[in-house]
Write a protein that binds this DNA or RNA. Structure first.
Lengths: 117, 117
DNA sequence: TTATAATATGAATACCTATTCATATAATAA
DNA sequence: TTATTATATGAATAGGTATTCATATTATAA
């Protein structure tokens, strides 16, 4: 006997799913991106950088919290290639690694609007 | 003396940032969405549902792992309105709460492609 | 009603990770 | 060189959360 009353449809859905299946690696890449964006402290940093590059001091000013915490998160973002940095005199200036991130943020901001409306 | 050699530009960036600033609540909504999408087990469930509605049994079949774990994650997804469910005889059938989720997933899949290419 | 199938739930555990504190490094100014 | 400023880093801690196991619930079949 069948598991449920939608046996055929579900089996077909599962069949399509297998056809388009992501590899475990791709799944990990995708989830990792979302995980990075899922922390408010990191998101604040990312949002700050949408307005242009910033040195660490100004990032700290923008997001609040202590300098060490911000530095740790910048490291995480950099290791994962969401941001890049360059030294400029005694400062380190951070900016987005590529346009990719800001696109995603743009869409996320739309989501917030929808969620509230 | 100034903090860095880009004092003016950074101050202007921070000014624009304050102008467009998200509330803490909106930030939380946004991050929460990303956090939900950042777990591979949950993402597998979500990806499975992109092919159509499924009962729990078939979700378990699609994503692997044990039934209890899947049920717990379905609960999380439902509490956060990413999915909805309806009873159908002895089965519970899950599907996306709205079109929103599948849009985001579509974009994320693009990201994976870019990341690899 | 009793048995069984499908799903949900509670508690316990184990892992992960964000934050903090203290300190190190690196560049510049004196 | 020494002092100071800007940033990074290591270790420790605490809070969160995914998973598992056992069990409860709900619906149907016998």
């Amino acid at each position: 006997m069948d598991i449920c009353d939608h046996e055929r449809e579900h089996e077909e859905a599962l069949k399509r799913l297998r056809a388009t299946a992501l590899s475990e690696e791709d799944l990990a890449i995708m989830c990792n991106l979302f995980k990075l964006l899922g922390d408010p402290s990191r998101m604040k940093i990312i949002l700050a950088l949408t307005e242009g590059e910033l040195c660490v001091y100004h990032i700290v000013e923008a997001v609040g919290g202590n300098q060490s915490a911000v530095s740790h998160q910048l490291r995480v973002l950099k290791d994962n290639r969401l941001v890049k940095s360059r030294r400029d005199g005694k400062n380190i200036v951070y900016s987005f690694y590529d346009e990719h991130v800001s696109r995603i943020i743009g869409i996320a901001l739309e989501h917030v609007v929808c969620e509230k409306g």
